[in-house]
Design a binder for these strands. Sequence first.
DNA 1: CTGTTAGCGCGTTCAT
DNA 2: ATGAACGCGCTAACAG
Lengths: 372, 372
Amino acid sequence: MPKKLTIRDIAELAGVSKSTVSRVLNAKQDVDPATREHILKVIEEHTFVLDMAASKLAGGRSRLIGSLIPSLAWPLMPEIMRGISEVVAQSPYELILYSITHEQVHHDKEQRDIISRILHSNLASGILAVFPGPSICYLTELYEEGFPVVIIDDRSEPTSVPWVSADNRLGAHAATKYLLQLGHRRIAHIQGPADYRASQERYLGYCDALQEVGLAPDPDLVCPGGFTPTDGRSAASHFITMPNRPTAIFASNDHVAYDVLAAADEHGIRVPEQLSVVGFDDIAPSSYSRPPLTTVRQPFYEMGKQATEMLLALLERPSTQRRLQIADSPYAPEIHPKAPQLNQMHSPTRVRMSTNLVERSSCSPYKGHIDC
Amino acid sequence: MPKKLTIRDIAELAGVSKSTVSRVLNAKQDVDPATREHILKVIEEHTFVLDMAASKLAGGRSRLIGSLIPSLAWPLMPEIMRGISEVVAQSPYELILYSITHEQVHHDKEQRDIISRILHSNLASGILAVFPGPSICYLTELYEEGFPVVIIDDRSEPTSVPWVSADNRLGAHAATKYLLQLGHRRIAHIQGPADYRASQERYLGYCDALQEVGLAPDPDLVCPGGFTPTDGRSAASHFITMPNRPTAIFASNDHVAYDVLAAADEHGIRVPEQLSVVGFDDIAPSSYSRPPLTTVRQPFYEMGKQATEMLLALLERPSTQRRLQIADSPYAPEIHPKAPQLNQMHSPTRVRMSTNLVERSSCSPYKGHIDC
DNA sequence: CTGTTAGCGCGTTCAT
DNA sequence: ATGAACGCGCTAACAG
């Protein structure tokens, strides 16, 4: 193990002073292009890397991003993390994982503790928070005090903190419209948890599509469900066994859609012949379910990327002016379809990414009622 | 935002010198219990936390663990991560995520790059490597040079690096024995990838159980498969459609078991009435498959915990003598059933955790052949 | 047992 | 455009 080189070693090797090397390393101006080149070459040859601890201590940036992550077991997390990691890997930053136990997700105090741990340890110079839940208020405070924070989706309404999510309403609209175009008219919806913004938005998208064709949402065809496995069991059974049952079901998400698939199987109803079902999220197992599930894909990977790029943009700004301006950021997003142009300061930054319908085999055209 | 306190502030507040504060912070001996208490109180009152950057720079430990993680999309990862996070959270350490893209998993060079990135950035003072694959050789080098490394399972044989995995052979033995006890005699096995140690071990466990009842493994009942979704499709169809088909199938893992379930469904074979199937891993969807899958649970959560505890034990040791001795470690594992007693130095540390059969609904007693 | 001194590796003034 | 000196917050010698 060759002993770790310091900036001084490089300075000596290049025949200059530490300061000059430091300047090159931090991309300062006022360095002779020739010496810059030379120093860069020496650095390259010796694969020298700055000591982050020392750099941070001396007043430089820490190049560490803290990520506040809910249970990695949520099936949407891996893709989000992939997006995050990819951007981080191509940057000079590293990612610290502050993951939250499932238990803690709902406990306000625990979250406050974690955040204070992040702050006090003084490591991370920015925070990426996925589904922060109750801690959103602390994060908002932090952000308003100038600490870089970006949020990836959440249960509640976005605050002033830059915020990335998918367009749930449009996605739900697309799903419902698709069923309508297949000829379905009795389309049921199993809702997500009432306290999730996404549930509301999906419900609204469902209503939007219905109203477009002059249909009013039928209260009998809307049932509460949830977002986790088996949350949709009873609603699914209810719809399937009710007299004059719906010919299609739009589930709050894929997990609930699986419940519908299972319930249908149990009651001898064939999908898609006798019942069409659409999910939401497009998590991995949806490609392999029986039948493969038609669903609305949330661009989790892209959301992770987008959010990380936004955070990096914040991080690269002088700390005095840490409001995000997407427009002139070096990490300007390519994808933010419905994002309003936010060039002026102090306007909340929200990026809403577009979803898209993934057609698989769980839907078929309505051909009149088929008895069991 | 109250300005960050330094160790000097605390020293002044407590009326002692920085060194003394440092000593109590680092749990050194030779501190008067009275002053220790007093300082601790002051620290507590002001919720002071050491600046890790400065601490590290000054020669202290970095309290940062680097985790080398393959795709988080592997369904076993969330549980492993949960185990890791939980132990890390209760320690003064933080976790840096060096996650590897799926593409990179197999590319030797990329991995070497990541490891050198870890080393050069000089942040992490230890590495937790999950399924390191090709980079195991670098990790071994590192470990032999005294850098703390612990590995959680891998495709190849363990090296001198401390290593945690589940007992695949015993697990497979249990699964097969279970089927035998249900009366099955024609038990097929779909194998995992040939270059995975786990595949071999599971196959051996399968043979063990067969031989115990005087049966020789029938080459016609063993097929190559894989570990990822759809890897088992063709093998499953093959077994199901073959004349005198097996009455039970032991799949290399749960994904492959799902393929068997799907193939059975497709061919109108009822599980478990006409065919019993057992998986391996017990990943989350196995509780919700149709029918719920009987499978061998790998204790991923416990493996994550165990490995992290081992790493912490290494980290807390003086760097001169960084060979792991489980016995007198403060993090001595409670669970390592078949682990040999490794109290002497220089012996490789392997912890093999026990699996256990989770009975659900995909198996039933053999009652003679039932035609479709 | 405790305080004093001297750096750790780097960024940032100041000079030049 | 570049170099010298100082200090970030802390730990590790050494005194006492």
